[in-house]
Simulated assay, not measured.
Amino acid sequence: MDFHLLPLIAVAAIFILAGFVKGMIGLGLPTIAIGLLSLFMPPAQAASLLIAPSLITNLWQLSGPRLLELSRRLWPMLTGVCVGAWLGGGILTGANAGRAVMALGVALIVYALVGLSAIKLSVPRNAEVWAAPLVGIATGFITAATGVFVLPAVPYLQAIGLDKDDLIQALGLSFTVSTIALGAGLLHDGAFETRAALASIAVLIPTFIGMYAGQFARERVSPATFRRWFFLGLLALGFYLAARAVS
């Protein structure tokens, strides 16, 4: 990594922004961080920086009284995440870096369009038996390929009828497992080294600064308005990354 002053400032600013979004709406940290970091470093390197902030913030988010019950309900999806991450191993690293940027751009575009749409999905409880593993495998594969683990897990969790508090906790649980699967894949591929681990721990500071600022702003800004601009920004970033990958 090039740790001259300008890259350090850019990385810190990105994690402040990503933390702000996380504090504001409860998700978006990996999406923002990977997307913006990939503008000036390989996606695998960006994913390595993400590991500690994502793991720590999501461990905090998943804590709650219904963790065991949610784990029992979601374990097929979470197991699928691990399987999918194993199947997608190696896509994010080495000679696949160019394709990873393209995949990341496409993933951001799809996620933004889903977020901007007014479509409300619904998954019946009896359909979770077959839907959960498929969603998990797809999420794990996309995680391994792009470093972003929101699709299709987030729309699925929003569609299975969880109340607000359970949804926030379930998102934290899903993101934690996805982060661990991503870290294990990077470690296996030799892309997560000691220096990357130390840098990942260091960016916890700007991440938490952003999170506290986001929690403060959440009381003063309409979440619906913020989410709209958040998804529009992701849409623009996704198109830029996809266009850069094919140029």
Rank of each mutant, 00 (worst) to 15 (best):
L167W: 00
Q169L: 05
F192T: 00
T176E: 03
G185K: 05
G190F: 13
L187C: 01
I137R: 05
D165Q: 15
D189M: 04
F208C: 05
M211P: 04
L182C: 03
F208R: 00
A131G: 02
D163W: 00
L151Q: 00
A197Q: 10
G147S: 02
L187I: 00
G172A: 01
W229T: 08
V203C: 03
S222Q: 12
M211E: 12
A213P: 06
F230M: 06
A196I: 01
L198S: 14
A127H: 11
L173V: 09
P155T: 10
K164L: 13
G210C: 03
I168Y: 05
S222H: 07
T176Q: 04
A202F: 12
A138H: 11
F208E: 02
A138E: 08
A144L: 09
L204A: 04
R220V: 04
A184F: 10
A159H: 07
V221F: 11
S200D: 10
P223A: 12
R218V: 10
D163H: 11
R227V: 02
I205R: 08
V129R: 15
A127K: 12
T194N: 14
V135C: 06
V148D: 00
F231Y: 14
D165G: 05
Q215Y: 09
L167Y: 13
G183L: 06
L162I: 05
G147H: 00
N126Y: 14
F208V: 03
A184G: 08
P124G: 14
A159D: 04
R228G: 12
T176W: 03
A191C: 07
